[in-house]
Amino acid sequence: MSNPIKLSLILSAAFCLAVPAYAQVDPEEVFKENDCHKCHHATKAKKGPALAKIAARYKEKKLDEKEAIKHMTSGKKVKLEDGTEEEHKIIDTKDIAVQTAVAKWMLDR
């Protein structure tokens, strides 16, 4: 094996190892598998606020994905669009990398 090929294989392997776990999941799929879309539409208000509205609010308040993860894992009471309250659903993964990927995807809407 020639040196350039060896080098490229080593670099490729190194790159793969360096890719964070969340880059290997489809955050939109996780979002939908968890039925988050039942309450959160991309642009329109449903039972919960639209993703676009959430992203804008986070941007305005300079919040990041850590806050979003807290929101999706704590099960705290949330106020719904109709004024009532209920406990927010908890995402069914404890993998922080997957949670981060979903949070980033949501806030990027």
Partner: peptide, 12 residues
């Protein structure tokens, strides 16, 4: 479908 309104809802 007021909640289940994704274009691929049935697949999901």
């Amino acid at each position: 479908v007021s909640c289940h309104d994704d274009p691929k809802e049935e697949q999901i």
